[in-house]
């Protein structure tokens, strides 16, 4: 499963650099023209990407799971509180339930925005480290 798609292989002879193949920086590619995953994994750009991913996903996941479980526990064990009327006949529980849907949308849109601004550019940066032949295919 490592080679998902067949790709045209680039001539991997060192020392025959042509103009269009001038490497912009040290490519993290091993002898067979495959990306050197170990080197990429420890590269500063990749570590930065990991940090950026973690910075959003970890707190967001904790927040939504805690919020959901709080809602479930309150429904199970604090029925009286959840039945307190809020707007007319609409009570705290129904409002909270609806707010779960609203927060889901908010987190979803926030993640989409964060990915576009902070993650995708960094992914491009890391990918540039290993511009393999598939890029040319």
């Amino acid at each position: 499963m490592t080679k998902a798609l067949p790709s045209v292989s680039r001539p991997a002879t060192p020392g025959f650099a042509t103009f269009e193949e001038e490497p912009r920086h040290a490519l993290l590619i091993d002898g067979d023209g495959e990306p050197d995953y170990g080197a990429i994994q420890t590269s500063e750009d990749f570590l930065d990407l990991k940090r950026r991913v973690k910075r959003f996903i970890l707190p967001a996941t904790l927040v939504f799971l805690t919020w959901y479980i709080t809602f479930v526990l309150l429904s199970a064990y604090a029925a009286d509180f959840m039945s307190t009327p809020l707007f007319g006949t609409v009570n705290v529980g129904l409002t909270m339930g609806f707010l779960q849907i609203v927060t889901t949308i908010i987190i979803t849109m926030a993640y989409a925005r964060y990915s576009k601004r902070k993650l995708d550019p960094q992914v491009d940066k890391v990918r540039a480290l290993a511009e393999t032949d598939e890029e040319l295919a």
Binding site: L5, S7, Y37, G38, I40, R127, E134
Partner: peptide, 21 residues
């Protein structure tokens, strides 16, 4: 398998090696 793990982590986050753009 450390090598495979590196490949999976890098590929999972960036798509390098998956042939996807």
């Amino acid at each position: 398998d450390a090598e495979k793990q590196a490949e999976m982590e890098v590929r999972g986050l960036t798509g390098i090696g998956s042939g996807l753009r």
